[in-house]
Amino acid sequence: MIDRYTWYEYAAIYAGIAVFLFFVLAPFIEGFMVSLKPLSRLFSSPYSFWPQEGSLTAYFTMWESVPGFWRYIVNSLFISTTATALVLIMVVPAAYAFARFPFPGRGPLLAAFLAVNMFSGAVLLIPLFRLMRQMGLLNTYWAMIVPGAAFLIPSAIWLLRTYMMRIPRELDEAAWVDGASRLYTLRRVILPIAMPGIAVVAITTFIGAYAQQFIFALTFNSKTEFMPLAIGLFAYFGRQEVVWNELMAASFVGIAPVLILIVFLQRYLVAGLTAGAVKT
């Protein structure tokens, strides 16, 4: 029998969830309210949470304030999609190798992957800049794609490796008995079963690549045609006056593609996270 919670335990649990959601969602709710307020009322006293004379005007005027706004969104989507594809190409065979083959140095290498995630991209900007310059990648899309993918690969390997470890080894052995090579086994036996886990890795990698573009784009790119959305919005702060309602409106339009992706793919995300929970 599973012990049931008492009423005050339920109250404490839901109160904790409510506090957590408040701190997570409050900045987004406040930012959305700011986007609806006229600029003249943003700093009025006393403060009013609900927008008085609120409208969607900022969502229309911000297109003129940010020239090439659509270009910035397309750049961000292209960088994120390409980085995700590059990560999957590298991670799928690597995760399979780490999950199946006890080769020398596997443990230290996995630990090194975790250590990489402890470093911020800002720490490695100078060596990365020198590397990008030597490779001739400055002021190109690849200057943002390659470093972004490199920082996302370690966590993706850990996530997908854990999923693949829950796939029965008997499937590999049966394929080998039938004469299948390891590459054929990965492609025809393991990949179809691992698709939920791969979907989780793809979604989390895309979100991570979409969110980390600012620092790499600011350092490795100076051409407008390659700028992602984060740098396009950063141009607001180069003015004498920041139009906060238009800035918030542009920010919400910019994150809309990721929100749409999560809404439509959340069932695959949940399925991938739970599919490997029980080992068969």
Rank of each mutant, 00 (worst) to 15 (best):
W158F: 15
W158K: 06
W158I: 15
W158D: 03
L159Y: 01
L159T: 09
L160G: 05
L160C: 07
L160T: 03
R161E: 12
T162M: 05
T162C: 04
T162A: 15
Y163T: 01
Y163R: 02
Y163C: 02
M164S: 00
M164G: 00
M165Y: 01
M165D: 02
R166L: 01
R166Q: 12
R166E: 09
R166Y: 02
I167Q: 00
I167T: 07
I167E: 01
I167L: 08
I167C: 02
I167K: 03
P168T: 07
P168A: 06
R169N: 04
R169Q: 06
R169D: 00
E170A: 13
L171V: 11
L171D: 01
D172W: 08
D172L: 12
D172Y: 09
D172V: 12
D172I: 10
D172N: 14
E173K: 14
E173S: 12
E173R: 11
E173L: 15
A174N: 12
A175Q: 11
A175D: 10
W176V: 10
W176K: 10
V177A: 09
V177W: 04
D178M: 13
D178S: 14
G179M: 02
A180K: 08
A180G: 02
A180V: 06
S181H: 11
R182W: 14
R182C: 00
R182A: 10
R182M: 10
R182D: 11
L183G: 07
Y184W: 08
T185G: 07
T185F: 03
L186E: 04
L186C: 10
L186S: 05
R187G: 03
R188T: 09
V189L: 11
V189D: 04
V189F: 07
V189H: 04
I190T: 11
I190V: 15
I190M: 14
